[in-house]
Computed example of a mutant assay.
Amino acid sequence: MNRSRGFTLLELLVVVSIVALATAGVGLALRDSGQALIEREAARLAALLESARAQSRAGGIPVRWRGDAGGFRFEGLPPSAQAALPSQWLDAGTTVLAPTVLVLGPEPLIGPQQVLITHQAHPERTLRVATDGVRPFTVEPAR
C-alpha cells in the first residue's frame, strides 16, 4: 500500500508565516542609512541646542550657536560648559545648508529660529531643526 503524503494546510501556513516574518525583518534591517544618519544628527543637534538654551537661561548669559560648512560651535558659555558641549558632527559629511547663527537666550522667549542640515553624500535629504521661540527645538522635514 503506497500512500502519498503531502503537506497539511496548517504546515503550509506556518511556513508562509515564517517567510513573511523573515522578509519583514530584512526590510527593517535594510533601512536607508543615509536618512538614519541625518535623523540622528538632527536629533542630537536639537538636544544640544536645548541644553545650551537651558544653560543660557540659568546663567543669565547670552549664548549663540554658529554653524557653517566646517562644523558648529557654541559662543558665550563659560569655559567649563563650553568644553562639555561638542563642536563637531558625528559624521564629517554632515553640514548646514547656509551659515547660520541661532540666539539661544538668556531670555525665556526667543524668536522663531531654524537650521537646515544635510549630508554631502545625500544632498537631497534635508532636515530642519527649529523652534517657534516658546517650545523646544524639534526635528522636521525641510520645506
Rank of each mutant, 00 (worst) to 15 (best):
V14Q: 07
I61K: 11
A98I: 13
F7A: 11
A92R: 14
W65H: 03
A36H: 08
A46N: 06
A54T: 10
R31P: 00
Q113M: 07
D68Q: 13
S87I: 04
A84M: 12
L49M: 10
V14E: 04
R40T: 14
G27S: 09
T131E: 04
I110A: 13
S80T: 14
G93R: 04
F74Q: 07
V16P: 03
I61F: 08
V134F: 03
A54Y: 02
A130G: 10
L49P: 08
R44L: 09
V115W: 01
E75V: 15
A121L: 05
E124Y: 00
R53K: 11
R73K: 12
I61S: 09
Q88V: 10
P86L: 03
A58T: 13
S80R: 11
A69M: 01
G60A: 13
E140L: 15
L13Y: 02
A29W: 12
Q82H: 15
I18F: 11
V134P: 01
G71F: 02
I110D: 14
G76A: 07
E124S: 12
L12A: 04
V96P: 04
V103I: 15
R3H: 15
V134W: 01
L10I: 15
P78E: 06
P86N: 09
E39L: 13
V129Y: 00
V134I: 10
T118A: 14
I61D: 08
P123G: 09
Q35E: 10
A142V: 03
G6I: 05
T118C: 05
A121R: 07
E107R: 03
L127E: 07
T118Y: 06
V96K: 04
P108C: 00
R44W: 08
D91K: 01
L109A: 09
L45R: 06
A43I: 05
